[in-house]
Amino acid sequence: MKHSAGFDARRLRPRGPASWRWRFLAALAALLAGLGVLLFLAGSASLLGRPPALGPLNDSLGAAISLLLLGLFLLWGGVDAWRRCRRRLSRRTGNALSLSPRLLKKRGRSR
């Protein structure tokens, strides 16, 4: 059977849902992780005796420790959310072939 010149195989496969929401959430999570790094650095600079980076906000020892811990939690939460969004973006439900995850690895152990 001869195919016509206007044949497009992509039309045969149903389109998946738009992934702009997950991309937006991944960007927001990356910004959250960046803010966590900045707060962590400001808290650690205050603990090390450098001049306070945020003015009177972290003058005391307790405020510096709280900034340090808040920065760590924001960094951890942002990286975790970013990884979940990236995993969700890479998983194409509906369009993907049903292969074992072990077969999809680039460098797996050979048995």
Rank of each mutant, 00 (worst) to 15 (best):
A63G: 03
W22P: 01
R10L: 05
G34V: 05
R10N: 13
L72Q: 06
G62R: 07
R92G: 09
R87S: 12
P51Y: 03
L38R: 02
P14M: 00
L48T: 14
A33Q: 13
R86E: 03
A30S: 14
L48Y: 10
L48Q: 13
L32G: 09
V79C: 07
G16R: 12
F73C: 02
S66I: 05
A33G: 12
L12H: 05
G43Q: 01
P17D: 06
F7Y: 15
M1P: 11
G78V: 03
R11W: 02
D59V: 02
L72V: 03
L69T: 02
F73A: 12
L48A: 15
R107A: 12
S46D: 09
P52I: 02
G71V: 01
A81T: 04
L89K: 06
G55E: 04
R15C: 09
T93W: 15
L69G: 01
I65C: 11
F24Q: 08
G78Y: 03
F73R: 04
A29Y: 05
G36C: 08
V37W: 12
A64E: 02
A9M: 07
R92L: 15
A96V: 04
L41A: 12
L35S: 10
K2G: 01
G43L: 05
D59N: 06
L41C: 12
S110Q: 13
G55M: 10
R107N: 09
R11F: 01
A30I: 07
A45E: 15
K105M: 10
G62I: 03
G16E: 14
L68Y: 01
P52N: 08
L89A: 03
R15S: 14
P56C: 00
A81H: 00
G77C: 04
L75D: 00
P17I: 04
R107D: 13
R84C: 01
I65P: 01
A53D: 00
R111V: 09
A5N: 10
P17T: 03
L12N: 07
L28I: 01
R21S: 08
L61F: 14
P51W: 07
R111Q: 09
